[in-house]
Design a protein around this nucleic acid. Structure first.
Length: 618
RNA sequence: GCGUGCGUAGUUCAAUGGAUAGAAUAUCAGAUUUCGGCUCUGAGGGUUGAAGGUUCGAGUCCUUCCGUGCGCACCA
């Protein structure tokens, strides 16, 4: 453990550090060895054993040259004598289970309550750019984008809480053959429709034309194939198909359109601007509904020429090389990869070229040390190359490039395929979820006494909460199954369960305030016996800063989902086992209110980091 | 073929190299004169894909094999 880590550790965990220090001292005294703090494993004691924190002594057995039990006994005795917060201990095999004095727990709760910024780490003075969303403008957003956006937004929040300075960015892929296809279909079959004239969101309208193009294109291929087969009777079918696909009239026309676009042909540019404009309006609505936002938006049309200079400079510096046909390459064979093309023989860019340029542009705009790309795992290779190339170019931020590679979202029926019409549209999905939330919540009478506006707000909160929670609870790296039935579930490990816990807590706090029961630190500081479930909550609350740190270091919101679920679950048990207002001991009653208040606060904070709102009533 | 992920209860997912591999769901059985029953408690359900190896200790690290996804364009 570096000094650096230790010092940040000290700030966030006032509970464990004294014990760790004490263990180090113990080993020093008894065995004359200076043990690394990192080797000391303190973990939460499983519920079936007595105690709250457990020290694993196995790692020191070799040094101590005695049986694990003996060693545990020695350390336990030492702690009892030198570490006032330890009230007793027991030993099971090589595990030293420590009981913390109840007063410490009361004090911990006081500290949490008095900390206005609980969970907010001190500034690290490190800038991070988080790029996410990155839509193509020829189609509306779908379920896969939802995972991407929720991940990107949440990771940004988490990094901020962990003390980083964060810039959220979005690169909009607004040019290229894909949008030309929509444009061409519109030109041919569009009859001057507009989003207003057909009453449709712009991104959906443009997406419709993309589908129209694709259908007509497929038909052309079918029609052309026999001709080609006659012409090249000895060619393999696969290669023949490639030829046909490249040469249908529609495809040739789309490519011609792209050329015109690149030459700034006024008519093409005008159509392009018009249709992209519709799409942006549509996207803005969708982003708003999703509850995500960006600090900086890049457009591919403005960045796609960047990177050429970068490549030329690298060529001059001998980092890249030129082949006979004038194409430029980078040799990554020593890094376990291949040679990779950076500029075509005609000097034009390829996909990665502009990413090199964009990376530098980002750095100009926001001199970051870390750069996170939230992009699907089908691009793993691409980002390996990007990082390596930037490292070879000696960019200061190159080592901080991190590809937050997430797995595909699959459906019970299999993969989403646009051809087969099995793509789940983001707008539709969110709307459906809100409908279901409305239906269920209304049936249960949960919104009795709500204004129409408040009701709608709640339905949306529950629906989006369910969806975000569902998509964020899985390790990003892994592919995940999206089961529509489960995603709108309100019970068990779900967003609504956690939201409900928060609403119950809010009700308790409201009542306490109405009854004017004090619950500040003075009101409960003398409580020195706590129920197990109360200790569990405090212990869990105290871990909050550390859990944020972990989530930030792994760029992984799922660990935070697990955290907040665990907290809601413990609290629900507390709620069932103990009564707040029927407790006769006034100090204890106050402690329970304070405990509730803090649990509610941390639930809300955690959920907000996930991009989820929590209700006061539901 | 090469590269790179992933295989854990019926299902969907957890598990900084640490105790008897945990949740949720579904199934079954219970709880509530109590602050909000979208709640709580309990039961059954596992050869962690297979085989070796490292380790005091392996779902986790290494090797091989099997299954599966993704990537291997002068496409983006």
């Amino acid at each position: 453990m570096s000094d650096n880590f230790l010092s940040s550790y000290k700030k966030i965990m006032n509970l464990e550090l004294p014990i760790i220090e004490s263990v180090i001292n113990c080993l020093k005294q008894h065995f004359q060895t200076d043990i690394n703090a990192q080797k000391i494993s303190l973990q939460a004691t499983p519920r079936e054993f007595e105690g709250e924190l457990t020290l694993v002594v196995f790692p020191f057995v070799k040094i101590a040259k005695c049986k694990p039990e003996e060693l545990a006994q020695k350390i336990g005795d030492f702690l009892l004598e030198n570490c006032p917060m330890i009230s007793k201990f027991n030993i099971v095999k090589g595990f030293l289970n420590l009981s913390i004095s109840p007063k410490i727990w009361t004090k911990t709760l006081m500290q949490i309550a008095e900390n206005q910024d609980f969970g907010q780490a001190t500034p690290k003075n490190i800038k991070v750019m988080v790029e996410y969303s990155s839509p193509n403008t020829n189609k509306p957003l779908h379920l896969g984008h939802l995972r991407n956006n929720f991940l990107g937004f949440s990771v940004s929040n988490i990094l901020q809480k962990a003390g980083f300075e964060v810039m959220k960015s979005n690169i909009v892929n607004d040019r290229g053959i894909h949008i030309c296809k929509s444009m061409l279909a519109y030109k041919k079959f569009g009859k001057n429709e507009t989003p207003q004239s057909v009453g449709k969101k712009g991104d959906h309208l443009v997406g419709d034309y993309y589908v129209i193009f694709d259908k007509a294109y497929k038909q052309e291929i079918q029609e052309l194939l026999p001709t080609y087969q006659r012409e090249f009777p000895n060619e393999e079918l696969e290669k023949l198909m490639e030829k046909v696909e490249k040469n249908t009239p529609l495809m040739l026309e789309a490519q011609e359109m792209l050329r015109k676009w690149e030459q700034n042909d006024p008519e093409t540019i005008e159509l392009w601007k018009k249709m992209n404009g519709w799409v942006y309006e549509g996207f803005a609505q969708t982003y708003q509904q999703m509850g995500v936002s960006f600090d900086k938006i890049y457009y591919e049309s403005e960045t796609y020429l960047l990177g050429k200079k970068t490549v030329e400079q690298g060529l001059k510096d001998g980092i890249f090389f030129k082949k006979e046909n004038q194409s430029v390459w980078v040799d990554l064979t020593n890094d376990g990869l291949d040679q990779k093309l950076l500029l075509r023989s005609d000097g034009t860019s390829v996909y990665i070229t502009q990413d090199l340029g964009l990376a530098d542009l980002k750095f100009q705009d926001f001199p970051m040390q870390q750069s996170v790309y939230v992009v699907g795992n089908e691009q793993d290779y691409h980002f390996k190359v990007l990082k390596l190339v930037m490292q070879k170019l000696g960019r200061s931020y190159a080592n901080g490039i991190f590809h937050l590679s997430y797995g595909m979202v699959e459906l019970p029926s299999g993969k989403m395929k646009s051809r087969e019409g099995t793509v789940v549209d983001a707008d539709d999905l969110m709307a459906e979820m809100i409908d279901i939330a409305r239906q269920r919540t209304f049936e249960l009478g949960k919104t009795d006494g709500f204004s129409a506006e408040d009701s709608e707000k709640l339905y949306k909160m529950l629906a989006l909460g369910a969806l975000k929670y569902y998509l964020l609870k899985v390790d990003p790296q892994k592919k995940m199954m999206f089961n529509p039935e489960d995603s709108i579930d309100f019970q068990g490990d779900t967003g609504v369960y956690v939201q409900f816990a928060h609403a119950k807590i809010a009700a308790i706090v409201r009542r306490a305030e109405m009854l004017e029961i004090p619950y500040d630190s003075n009101a409960f500081e003398n409580v020195n016996s706590l129920a197990n479930v109360e200790i569990e909550i405090i212990r869990h609350l105290a871990n909050f800063p550390e859990r944020i740190e972990t989530a930030a270091s792994r760029y992984d919101p799922s660990s935070l989902v697990a955290y907040v679920y665990e907290l809601a679950k413990i609290y629900s048990r507390f709620y069932a086992e103990l009564s707040v207002f029927q407790e006769e001991n006034v100090a204890k009653r106050s402690l329970r209110i304070a405990l509730s208040k803090q649990a509610g606060r941390v639930i809300a904070l955690s959920m907000n980091l996930l991009g989820i709102d929590v209700p006061e009533k539901m």
